[in-house]
Design a protein around this nucleic acid. Structure first.
Lengths: 352, 352
DNA sequence: TCGATATATGAGAGCGCTCCCAGATCGATC
DNA sequence: GATCGATCTGGGAGCGCTCTCATATATCGA
């Protein structure tokens, strides 16, 4: 029955796709010459090239990717691995930026982007199997968690891979692109201190991600540098709601808190909500600093934040990956983008 | 040089991928039997099946997709075509919902999602060529514009395709999933009228999209039904900023406006900004109704809106596509989801 | 004019897989 | 006990392409 369907499909294609053989015949050359002409035509006479080019146009020829892939062992596609069990995180502008940036890097290429989302409840090893199975030429991994575990496996498989955000086990020689989270958080602490805030707390991201860990470390380093105590720490999950809850905990821990650094803009927004809900004002009573520098919606309180060039980072990751695919094994240093403090209204000096 | 690289790659794979032949040998059966066992094992003895299963595990065998695809003419991947020149629209939660929903539909399948973004400045026919080139088994098209033009071409190519949002030329028999935009907009108009608003304007989406056109038509129908004049119309682009600008134009046109229907939540948020910036209050002076029913950030004014089950629609589109791939040519009716009015604070009755 | 080199071409093998077909094995039936 | 069907198996062809290799032709110096 199933076979019937298959055969039916095969027997009656709307318009049989021309093969290289057809192309060659139409151009009056051999399959070999046609192939060469298609692939950047080295060792092809101008006449043959022209004939093939014309035939391509008139036949509407497209090379069969599967056949090509079978022999070249290249698939002309890369995977974007998004390892988040919770579908909600797709809402994070971060992913939009990543997709935009990677797409940009692939622009002049014939590479295609395969979206590989770890599905909640799905087989976790499925992703690795797919990646190791030779279905893609490389992978870009975002949102990597400590417990993912397959970092080593991936590194061992030899599949060209670039992480966006430093992976745990970065010492495995894995390529990655990152923002200087430590410095960014440090700058946030110094900035809050410089504006006269003294009782500071932070909302972290999930600590199983290096970005969160680095930001917490940088935050503490900055506080130390400013001569301030570590202050309360609450863990969020990079969502606005998580930011709100965490900020509530912060305020409960120290009711005299006058500054909050959230490890993402989304959480900072949530923190502002919590602060206001508690009857305090931003920045009057509590200054808030975020991390990311998303464009804020009009009407929202302009947010002091740490800028990270997300789209550019993603583009860079794409380029690194392409380079690594082209020339595998070349040691490539991580690309770390500087974090830049952007001062806006949410951290205006205390109005005293 | 390049060949050198290829050969190098081929000569020294980290761990040579086992082929079906290897599998068969390890299992002590023929290639044919191994193949049958892999593919759902009809006409395979339990012993052979078990032997193959064991060999798969011990060898870590994964079928070579290219080879399989070459003969079956199936690629086990579908394209998600996002046809937006402007990268910013990726920020729209709509796309997050689409990706989430489609991923959900593909869950138990071995289908992969290929992201096909039309790139600003890129060759517009590239998308069609790719789709027609047999690189995917089907396509889901979102964000379809009137000028895209390739709807007919796609329909003619016979590639299983499902649109999310009714396409222009829906009479070509193209499958699609949509929300009842007309009814939704009509409900918005009736609701605003019922709460005592009489001077109503609307912010539309780009009118080269059916969703925008339908919502405008439904809006006007609702107004007529309520015995109200058509009122001012301003065109937005589904972004908050566009909503703000459009609302400003609306207020300029009728300074006594007391209700605005925006064709998306994002634009409704922008409209609220504009209303407030003009010194008016929401909903005190002007009621605002959106369309989409996105989750709103905490702290934002709860928005009266038209609910559309986006994730479910995307999942449905995925299922429809899978069905169409499995059993091509079967006429399938469009699936239209009802639009549901969700009343919240932004359209509370006029405080007079 | 003749070899030597460079350049262009086509024949053929084979990538890993599915599927057709023919043969083998086994009970059940006459 | 021979015949039949049902079930299972392996051989072999071939999907469309790239790439090696041998051959054909053009280019040059001697």
């Amino acid at each position: 029955m199933n076979e019937q369907i298959h055969r039916g499909l095969r027997a009656a294609p709307a318009r049989p796709t021309p093969t290289l053989e057809d192309l060659a015949t139409a151009a009056g050359v051999s399959r070999s010459t046609a192939s060469r002409a298609i692939n950047g035509g080295s060792r092809v006479s101008p006449e043959a090239q022209a004939a093939v080019d014309a035939a391509v146009l008139s036949l509407g020829y497209t090379p069969n990717r599967a056949a090509r892939s079978l022999v070249t062992r290249r698939t002309s596609s890369i995977a974007l691995v998004i390892n988040e069990p919770d579908a909600r995180v797709m809402m994070d502008p971060f992913f939009a930026a990543v997709i935009t940036g990677v797409t940009e890097a692939l622009r002049e290429t014939d590479m295609q982007l395969v979206l590989l989302m770890s599905r909640a409840g799905g087989d976790p090893s499925r992703t690795v199997r797919y990646l190791r199975g030779g279905h893609v030429d490389g992978a870009i991994v975002v949102s990597h968690h400590k417990a993912d575990g397959w970092t080593e496996e991936l590194a061992a498989s030899g599949l060209p891979t670039v992480f966006i955000g430093r992976p745990w086990d970065a010492d495995l020689g894995i390529h990655y692109v990152d923002v200087d989270s430590f410095q960014g958080a440090r700058l946030a602490a110094l900035h809050l201190a410089a504006t006269g805030r003294t009782r500071l707390g932070t909302v972290t991201g999930p600590l199983d991600m290096t970005a969160s860990a680095d930001r917490l470390a940088g935050w503490h380093a900055g506080l130390r540098e400013a001569g301030l105590p570590p202050g309360p720490v609450a863990h969020g999950d990079f969502t606005p709601a998580g930011g709100t809850e965490a900020a509530e905990r912060l305020l409960a821990e120290d009711s005299g808190l006058d500054g909050i650094f959230a490890a993402s803009d989304l959480m900072a927004r949530g923190a502002i909500t919590a602060v206001r809900a508690s009857g305090r004002s931003v920045p009057g009573d509590v200054a808030v600093v975020g991390f990311d520098d998303h464009v804020s919606a009009p009407g929202e309180l302009p947010l002091t934040t740490i800028n990270q060039p997300m789209v550019e980072m993603a583009t860079q990751a794409g380029r690194l990956l392409l380079a690594d695919i082209e020339n595998p094994g070349a040691g490539r240093d991580p690309v770390i983008y500087p974090a830049r403090l952007v001062v806006r209204a949410s951290s205006a000096p205390k109005a005293e």
